[in-house]
Each structure stands twice: as structure tokens, then as C-alpha cells.
């Protein structure tokens, strides 16, 4: 069994009127089956409202399945007893950097999770130092979060999750509110954590450029997983992605159009270097 496994997972938001009668049922997750292995870097794509954030909330036991089962590190999230252990093993980073930092000093914020877990004081200091170094924010440990850039704040938030020693980090659109520099910082940080610390990463995003290095890409639409594969496989289906309100990186699109015009470049090109190499061959 992988670190995260979902079997026929369904989630329904039920709206009731004043008398408690069911007014509307919205199936936000529809028959999701996934099996994510420890150490993988998984990207989940989908337009707003496709169900990807609902899925993220399940991974952190904020929401419970209406039907089906979800196991996080072997624990069934429906079991109320597991709730804190689930949250500890699958840490969650949210979109808005301001709204997830609790403390007024960077180091104290990173210590917040371990404090909640009842970690002894000395160990908290060790964890804080280690995790701030992991995200390259150690020199800012005494700073106020209000004086950091968006990308720096997100890195502090990541350190705050790391300090709980999770096996898996779920990032729910962590770069949506950042500028290009901040986006790069965050992606670089999580890629390194995945490679060097072997932490499983689940990145939810709608920036295609951020997922080219993922082990696998899942595309969601209307609560279902509609595409699945390596970035190369997924991005080779440009027209299908458009149907799901997504776009591919500009180079991929350029390669796609060149192919349509008869230039023999291969499918699913992801970087400018790849494309240039391919074109050189047919000069």
C-alpha cells in the first residue's frame, strides 16, 4: 500500500434549506482512485472548481469521505482517532501565505506545530533550526513574518509543516498569490525536499510550468481524475487539456503547432532546451 491510497472516494457537499430538507447535492469528488508511493512528486492540475482542493482537504482529514475510503500512511481518515496522526503525517501548506502563519516571530511559528505535538523544548529548537535551514530561511529566524516577501512566507510555512516530521506534504496552490520570483523559490524548495529528504510531495496548482519535473501528473475535472501520466504524456494531449480549461506551457504549445504544420518534433516537449534540440535535428 502506498502512502496515500484512495478507493472509490466520493465527497458530496449537501445544502439543506431551513427545515433541514436536502436542497442540493454537489458531487465534488466522484469515484477517485489513487495510489501514491512514498517519495513521489505528484502534481494535481485542474481549473478552479474541479475538485482538487476538496481532495486536498481529504488528505488532511479536514473533510471525510461520503463514500469510499482514504488511507493516509495506512490510517483510515474516517476513524476519528487517527485525525491528529493523519494531520501530522500529511502536512498541509495553504494558498494565502499571510493566513497560515500564527506567530509573530519566524522561529516561533516553525515551533508551533511541534509545540502542539508535545515535543520537548530542546527537541523543538533542534527541529526549528533544521527545518529553517532546509528551506534556507535560517537567517530570518528572528524576523517578523510581516517583513518577509510572499515567497519567503511560504517557505516559512513549509518549514512549519516540516517541523512536524511529516512523511508527505500537500501544497494547495502554494504559488497562486506569489510573483514569479516567489513561485520559483517555493518550487525549488519543494523539489529539493523531495529529492534530498525523500519527502512525498503532492502539489496542487494551475501553473503548468511548475509540474514539468513531477513524477506523475493527475488532471481533475468535475470531481474526477480525467488524465494521468508523466508530464510528457499529459502535455502531449494539448487539445484535451484545453477541454478541461487548462493550457500548456508556451513552448509545449509552440512544439504542438510546429508538429501540426509538419515539422517532425516529438510530442510532449516541456522545456525550451528540448524544443531547440529537436528543431536543430531537422534544420
Amino acid at each position: 500500500m502506498g502512502i496515500i491510497q484512495a478507493e472509490n472516494l466520493v465527497h458530496e457537499y449537501i445544502r439543506r434549506d431551513e427545515d433541514g430538507n436536502v436542497e442540493e447535492i454537489n458531487r465534488a469528488l466522484d469515484d477517485i482512485n489513487i495510489d501514491i508511493q512514498a517519495g513521489q512528486f505528484i502534481a494535481i492540475l485542474g481549473h478552479n472548481g474541479s475538485g482538487k482542493s476538496t481532495l486536498a482537504k481529504h488528505l488532511n482529514a479536514i473533510l471525510m469521505p461520503t463514500e469510499g475510503t482514504l488511507w493516509v500512511d495506512g490510517m483510515d481518515t474516517l476513524d476519528r482517532e487517527n485525525i491528529w496522526k493523519v494531520r501530522q503525517s500529511a502536512g498541509m501548506v495553504f494558498q494565502n501565505p499571510d493566513n497560515q502563519i500564527v506567530a509573530n516571530v519566524v522561529e516561533e511559528d516553525v515551533g508551533f506545530g511541534p509545540e502542539n505535538l508535545g515535543v520537548p523544548t530542546e527537541d523543538i529548537w533542534k527541529r526549528v533550526e533544521e527545518c529553517l535551514k532546509d528551506v534556507r530561511m535560517y537567517e530570518f529566524r528572528k524576523a517578523s513574518p510581516n517583513h518577509l516577501s510572499g515567497g519567503q512566507k511560504q517557505r516559512v510555512a513549509i518549514a512549519g509543516i516540516l517541523a512536524m516530521h511529516p512523511k508527505c506534504i500537500v501544497l494547495d496552490e502554494p504559488t497562486a498569490m506569489l510573483d514569479p520570483v516567489g513561485r520559483k523559490e517555493v518550487i525549488k524548495t519543494i523539489t529539493r525536499l523531495n529529492k534530498e529528504e525523500n519527502i512525498t510531495v503532492i502539489l496542487i496548482t494551475h501553473y503548468m510550468e511548475e509540474v514539468v519535473n513531477a513524477d506523475a501528473v493527475l488532471v481533475m475535472d468535475k470531481g474526477r481524475i480525467v488524465m494521468q501520466g508523466t508530464p510528457k504524456e499529459v502535455f502531449s494531449k494539448v487539445d484535451k487539456l484545453k477541454e478541461y480549461r487548462l493550457t500548456v506551457p508556451e513552448v509545449t504549445l509552440l512544439a504542438h503547432k510546429l508538429r501540426q504544420k509538419g515539422v517532425p518534433v516529438s510530442k510532449g516537449i516541456l522545456t525550451t532546451e528540448q524544443l531547440v534540440e529537436e528543431i536543430k535535428k531537422v534544420m
Binding site: I62, M92, E107, E108, F112, G113, E115, G118
Partner: peptide, 26 residues
């Protein structure tokens, strides 16, 4: 909205009141 987000982020970091908490800076 911020309060709601923050509450969720705190829960995600296993905050459940003062009981059983240790202190980084006692």
C-alpha cells in the same frame, strides 16, 4: 475569511487547545 483560513491552518498543524502543549520558549 482570514480567521477561517487561520483556524484551518492551525488545525492542520495539530493545534487542539492548551492541553498537552509544550513550549518552545518556556
Amino acid at each position: 475569511r482570514r480567521a477561517n483560513d487561520l483556524a484551518r491552518a492551525m488545525e492542520a498543524r495539530c493545534y487542539r487547545g492548551g492541553e498537552g502543549r509544550t513550549k518552545m520558549k518556556p
